[in-house]
Design a protein around this nucleic acid. Sequence first.
DNA 1: GTCTATAGGTGGATAGAC
DNA 2: GTCTATCCACCTATAGAC
Lengths: 182, 182
Amino acid sequence: MKKMSETEEKIIQLGTAFIQSRGVNGFSYAEISTAMGIRKASIHYYFPKKQDLIARVLEVYNQDFKASLDAIRARGEDFSQSLEAFIQLYRRNLESGNICLCSMLATEQYALTEAINQSVQEFFQCNTDWLKSLFEDEGLVSQLAEDFFATVQGAQLITKASGDLSYFDQLLTDKLARLTKK
Amino acid sequence: MKKMSETEEKIIQLGTAFIQSRGVNGFSYAEISTAMGIRKASIHYYFPKKQDLIARVLEVYNQDFKASLDAIRARGEDFSQSLEAFIQLYRRNLESGNICLCSMLATEQYALTEAINQSVQEFFQCNTDWLKSLFEDEGLVSQLAEDFFATVQGAQLITKASGDLSYFDQLLTDKLARLTKK
DNA sequence: GTCTATAGGTGGATAGAC
DNA sequence: GTCTATCCACCTATAGAC
């Protein structure tokens, strides 16, 4: 982890929020600079090309997300509690009307470098691996873990369309109940 | 169904493909006109504003999709066959590297009119209602239909990221097997 | 209905002063 | 590091000739 200036950190933070809400083609350096009270050229000082910013935003996002997953595992709670914590990671984005960064980037492949698309895939793989491990400890087949992840991803998208968080909650509460009842 | 000129029909067809692959902010009238061998101004003759084109693309897409769902129902095949036909409707997009139009539009809410966002929601509702009816006829609770739809939506997104159609097939084949085995 | 021409705006990006 | 100034490409959209 290299240390960052406050300015750089703020740019990444705003960049993350903008990409999550509007996608890479829906935000501009102008918007970030306005929000920060600096000029566009200053953003270019830290991230010469837009793809540089996107790549860094994704890097930080993936690191943070992986850390969150590790933290859940480290708490050593039971299957149900761990899964709820996982769901909560996705719910948080929806509370501000956004979806997961990588869900958004997955829809914008054509506008991204090969390296970025690769990292998006790794994010999905990381999620899947984590879930598979959790499910296997519970004696559940890995297919159920894959299924669970796809359901969360889809529920996110459908929830975003309506803005109805109770749909998201209900769907995943029910799914969790079915998994633990057997 | 109003009758359309061939030009108008072609614009809608290309518009649909472009939005599905790049989103509303990722395509331009210039691209459509180039692809058709006409001028930008001609597109504006049919669809003065970009939102007009998007709205029409969505209208036609939803009509066609609904017709496909009705056709599946009308064939009167069993639960498993009907569900496979449903999955196939989503798989078709992935074969050309695209996702469902409404999945894409759901991520671009901020750039769309209220009416368009409403239609996207209706598309999801239409899918859910159709699935619920199918599931209920099979004696399955409606929660399983909601779950199924979210899974398809999510699997689509994850598949788009990797381009690996066999992931999509495997995931949904397994899910279908679990549903019919009980 | 399709065209040329153009307006008016915003995008990403860079050079060079401070 | 941050700024002003600017470039050029592209966007949506419109006016008006044919």
